[in-house]
Design a protein around this nucleic acid. Structure first.
Length: 575
RNA sequence: UGGGGCGUCGUCAAGCGGUAAGACACAGGGUUUUGAUCCCUGCAUUCAGAGGUUCGAAUCCUCUCGCCCCAGCCA
């Protein structure tokens, strides 16, 4: 049903091989290392699943480690959110780790490099450092400070630590090779002065280690065996190895790179997501249209669906753009299996059943899940006045329209067969009510005379229902690739990504719905109560995803006739 | 004309010298009180291209082409 771990992607093969060679004594340890400078998104989920799955699969452990070496960008709220989200996704990580917990040790390792003559304090300005670095095609040149004595370096570095210098005055650099074709090896900066309070170490430090120095050493200190990261760090691997080879760490983890995830019709980068928020294009980090895990959670995505998706897409080194449809397919799979069925009318059209006794109400039974009778039945109330979906009526319907139209008979799900007798319109000519008759002999939906009724539509008792707001979401961008032809992705937003419907009429049992618990509104899609904007007076439901809709697809392929407002069906063409 | 990667169906992705898995999508058909679900069926003579090695190549070699990443005191 769920989560069949894919067999053998290349990282799994490497680990398997290492185990059979008894490398690391057959131990496996991975880590998920987010920088707490933003919220997690679906792209991170891939890495989370990969790291935790590899550990789980090979009886190892996976650490959650915050890569918090740049206090200028990092915040406690992100630390909290990330922990929360990883737990929600379903992974156990025990006590989280922090690179900042290694600041003392990192400082010692920097000292070790200086004593070995492999690091020096450089007093070039940022601009000068850039100039000295050379370009992609020209080698760099040595810093004039490259040959300072060990003593002087030790003294300067200590004074950096003690706060005697301002930002940018000095840096500590590894002494590697200014002529290396790999720019990362041209005496990379290890420490810089930064006068910013750190979320965890406060103002204890005014110098902070850079990523390349911090990351590998943190891995080694935690006994990580396989350090999985994305492709852009491939060029950093020689540096990763250089640090671990030149400093006294307990082990030397192996860095392995894989391609990060991309999905069409959305953007996956903290920077771009941040911009959508800053420019007010979406409501915040947890806007249900966003691919952030908090947004997806609020919208109704389930952890199981996301995990399954991450397992299904595989792991490789090829840049790819995954079809949003695949994510949705995984979602529907889980929701179809687990969501209780209910009825809700989101664009109500009143129906009066003229031959049904006035003032009478009766209780009918409906299945909670047609494929799972063990989930039981629920009561739904029925009376003379009900609501049906506006889309389920056409004044001049084509032949293949199996719903309501003048003189047509349909089944009200779990109720009766009704026939449309009369159409009532307002002054503007809009249909505002239908007068129908019902066949009392069809209680439950079957006709004793065996006549076939092709269409079944959902409905709600007008005298016993829940008023609600419903939010319909669509893809955030119009284009499959929001940045096609170098366009600014913000210009490509789908103006119809959010549609708010008020005055929706839902089955009464939804009054006790809990946030994020999925329901299938039959024939419409999967919905859940919004945890943030719902009030006692006005519940708000988010549409998580629609049902597959063969009818809508058909109608789209064959454009509307000019007559009424409804979607117009045509005969399907052959071939 | 620096370095590092990557190129298998529309989209992901198996394949590791023995004659192209699977998933999503798509197209037909069946079941159905959700036009949902479910169930069948079809869907790469071909692996970026060209040469070569071999009885045999997507898999090995050579060259060519295309795409991505790197010049933060970000991660």
């Amino acid at each position: 049903m769920e989560e069949e771990t894919k067999k053998g992607h290349f990282i799994e093969s490497i680990i398997q091989e290492d185990i059979s060679n008894n490398k690391n004594d057959g131990r496996v340890a991975t880590r998920f290392p987010p920088e707490p400078n933003g919220y997690l998104h679906i792209g991170h989920a891939k890495s989370i699943c990969l790291n935790f799955n590899m550990a789980g699969q090979f009886n190892g452990k996976c650490n959650l480690r915050f890569d918090d070496s740049n206090p200028a960008k990092e915040k406690q709220i992100y630390i909290d959110s990330i922990q929360n989200t990883v737990k929600w996704l379903g992974f156990e990580y025990g006590t989280p780790f922090f690179a900042s917990d290694y600041f003392d040790k990192l400082y010692e390792f920097a000292l070790e490099l200086i004593r070995k003559g492999k690091a020096y304090v450089c007093s070039l300005t940022a601009d000068e450092i850039r100039e000295y670095r050379g370009t992609l095609t020209e080698p760099g040149k040595n810093s004039p400070y490259r040959d300072r004595s060990v003593e002087e370096n030790l003294d300067l570095f200590e004074r950096m630590k003690n706060g005697e210098f301002g930002e940018g005055e000095h840096t500590l650099r590894a002494k590697i090779d200014m002529a290396s074709p790999n720019i990362n090896l041209r005496d990379p900066i290890i420490y810089r002065v930064k006068n910013a309070p750190h979320p965890r170490t406060g103002d204890k430090w005014c110098i902070y280690p850079m990523y390349d120095f911090t990351h590998g050493i943190s891995d080694a200190l935690e006994g990580i065996t396989h350090s999985l990261c994305s492709l852009e760090f491939e060029d950093h691997r020689p540096l990763y190895d250089w640090f671990l080879d030149n400093v006294s760490v307990p082990c030397h983890p192996q860095q392995i790179e894989f391609a990060r995830m991309n999905i069409n019709f959305t953007v996956l980068s903290k920077r771009k997501l941040q911009r959508l928020i800053d420019e007010g294009k979406v409501a915040g980090w947890d806007d249900p249209r966003l691919p952030t895990l908090e947004g997806m959670r609020r919208r109704g995505y389930t952890p199981a669906a996301i995990r399954n998706f991450c397992n299904i897409i595989g792991v490789s080194k090829k840049e790819s753009r995954i079809d949003m449809g695949l994510l949705e397919s995984c979602l529907r799979d889980d929701l179809n299996e687990n969501a209780m069925r209910v009825m809700g009318v989101i664009r109500p059209l009143k129906v009066t059943i003229e031959n049904y006794p006035e003032g009478q109400t009766e209780t009918l039974e409906a299945m909670n899940h047609p494929q799972k009778p063990e989930l039981g039945k629920r009561d739904v109330s029925f009376s003379r006045e009900i609501y049906v979906e506006q889309d389920d009526f056409m004044e001049d319907p084509p032949k293949k329209f199996f719903r309501l139209g003048p003189g047509r008979e349909v089944r009200l799900r779990a109720a009766y067969l009704v026939t449309c007798k009369e159409v009532i319109k307002n002054e503007a000519g809009e249909v505002v009510e239908l007068i129908c008759t019902y066949d009392p002999a069809t209680r439950g939906g079957n006709a004793p005379d065996g006549r076939k009724v092709k269409g079944t539509i959902h409905w709600v008792n007008a005298n016993d229902c829940l008023d609600a707001e419903v939010r319909l979401y669509d893809r955030l961008f119009k284009d499959e690739n929001p940045e096609q032809d170098g366009q600014d992705f913000v210009e490509n937003l789908n103006p119809a990504s959010l549609e708010v419907l008020t005055g929706c009429k839902l089955e009464k049992r939804l009054a006790s719905a809990e946030p994020e618990v999925p329901f299938q509104f039959e024939r419409l899609g999967y919905f859940c109560l919004d945890r943030k904007d719902s009030t006692d007076d006005m519940p708000v439901f988010n549409r998580t995803v629609t049902l597959r809709d063969a009818w809508a697809k058909l109608a789209k392929q064959h454009p509307p006739r000019k007559n009424k407002g409804n979607k117009p069906p045509r005969q399907k063409k052959k071939g």
